[in-house]
Simulated scan of single mutants.
Amino acid sequence: MTATVPIGEFSRLTYLTIKTLRYYHEIELLEPVSIDPGSGYRFYSTAQVDQAHLIKRLRELNMPLPEIKAVMAAPDQAARDAAIRAHLERMEAELVRTRDVVASLKSLLLPSARISVEYRSVASHPAVAMRKVVAREDCGEWCEYSFGSLYERLAAVDLAPAGPGGATYAPSFFEEDRGEVVTFVPIEARHRDRFDAASVLDLPARRFAIAVHAGPFTDFDRTYGALGSHVAEHDSALTEPIRENYLVGPGDADPTDYRTEVCWPIGRL
């Protein structure tokens, strides 16, 4: 059995202010079951209490109002639950990101550890590769997709990588938050004819100053800052893409175990 109550009573039942209930009516999120034609006073059904509670919790989870409207308009319970689960997954990912940023910020309060820099001359070698101009915010998603595609190509011809996968980042990627990113997986030269020519890239021979970044990418900028400063103070950098080698990366381990070589080009062989 349900009952109809005035807006003030409904406010007490739902812990939503009258001002909020009026606003939700205006945007057609939670509409009263009837409005007195003379006074304009709003009345709600007790059957709407659960809806109001759901809206309140979704707002506490920072779900945008358009998304809440979509949840409330879902054709059935399964569709509604799926929309809520998707938002919760996004929030959980944001919590992980926040945790990592907090840890990184705390590390800034500690004395900087001296970075270990290795110098290495790397010969030219072939790799299967994909390239795309990518915005920084989309880089992680694109790298995940492209590496998946590259390793699938190797598996299709029953080949193992000749070394760890990596990527190069054009200067504009850092300067403008958008630039060409080339993902690659090394192969042996004798196997290059097993791929179409367009998908094989010859990475140029270079001499690098190299530092290893341990852990997730949240404080990647600190490794870049330390290595780049070392190069500026002791060497002469080339204005060309920086190369990263993913010794242990996504798909291989927990983020705390990631190990990434940052390779700063300082000379041609």
Rank of each mutant, 00 (worst) to 15 (best):
residue 151 Y to S: 05
residue 182 V to R: 13
residue 214 A to W: 02
residue 201 L to H: 09
residue 135 A to G: 03
residue 233 E to Q: 12
residue 131 R to C: 09
residue 87 H to W: 13
residue 117 V to F: 02
residue 252 D to R: 07
residue 3 A to G: 03
residue 28 E to L: 02
residue 167 A to W: 06
residue 215 G to P: 13
residue 50 D to W: 00
residue 51 Q to S: 11
residue 52 A to M: 10
residue 232 A to H: 01
residue 125 H to L: 14
residue 91 M to A: 08
residue 148 G to N: 11
residue 22 R to Q: 13
residue 139 C to E: 12
residue 233 E to L: 10
residue 252 D to A: 11
residue 34 S to E: 12
residue 58 L to M: 12
residue 225 G to R: 06
residue 218 T to E: 11
residue 239 T to W: 05
residue 97 R to W: 08
residue 198 A to E: 15
residue 43 F to K: 03
residue 154 L to E: 04
residue 232 A to S: 03
residue 148 G to E: 10
residue 196 D to I: 08
residue 90 R to W: 03
residue 60 E to D: 14
residue 4 T to P: 00
residue 196 D to S: 15
residue 242 I to K: 04
residue 193 D to W: 04
residue 113 A to R: 14
residue 84 I to E: 02
residue 32 P to E: 00
residue 135 A to S: 08
residue 184 F to Y: 15
residue 194 R to Q: 15
residue 199 S to I: 14
residue 128 V to F: 11
residue 219 D to I: 04
residue 259 R to F: 01
residue 242 I to W: 04
residue 210 I to T: 11
residue 47 A to Y: 09
residue 240 E to D: 07
residue 183 T to N: 14
residue 126 P to D: 04
residue 189 A to R: 15
residue 96 V to N: 00
residue 267 G to R: 01
residue 56 K to C: 03
residue 218 T to Q: 08
residue 119 Y to S: 11
residue 197 A to Y: 09
residue 205 A to F: 12
residue 5 V to A: 09
residue 130 M to R: 09
residue 261 E to P: 09
residue 221 D to A: 13
residue 109 L to T: 03
residue 12 R to A: 13
residue 149 S to K: 13
residue 23 Y to F: 14
residue 180 E to T: 14
residue 48 Q to H: 11
residue 51 Q to T: 15
residue 227 L to I: 07
residue 140 G to Y: 05
residue 187 I to W: 07
residue 255 P to W: 08
residue 18 I to V: 15
residue 57 R to S: 08
residue 258 Y to S: 06
residue 25 H to Y: 08
residue 89 E to P: 01
residue 154 L to F: 03
residue 85 R to A: 13
residue 252 D to Q: 11
residue 133 V to L: 03
residue 177 D to Y: 01
residue 238 L to D: 01
residue 225 G to D: 07
residue 172 S to F: 02
residue 81 D to W: 02
residue 74 A to C: 05
residue 239 T to P: 06
residue 41 Y to A: 10
residue 241 P to R: 07
residue 269 L to Y: 10
residue 34 S to F: 00
residue 50 D to L: 04
residue 6 P to I: 12
residue 4 T to K: 06
residue 76 D to W: 07
residue 244 E to K: 07
residue 76 D to G: 06
residue 151 Y to M: 13
residue 1 M to V: 13
residue 254 D to T: 10
residue 78 A to N: 05
residue 257 D to R: 15
residue 248 V to N: 00
residue 97 R to K: 14
residue 169 Y to P: 06
residue 261 E to K: 06
residue 46 T to G: 09
residue 221 D to G: 08
residue 232 A to Y: 01
residue 228 G to E: 10
residue 137 E to D: 11
residue 14 T to P: 03
residue 64 P to W: 02
residue 32 P to T: 01
residue 236 S to P: 00
residue 89 E to A: 07
residue 85 R to N: 09
residue 167 A to Q: 07
residue 161 P to Y: 04
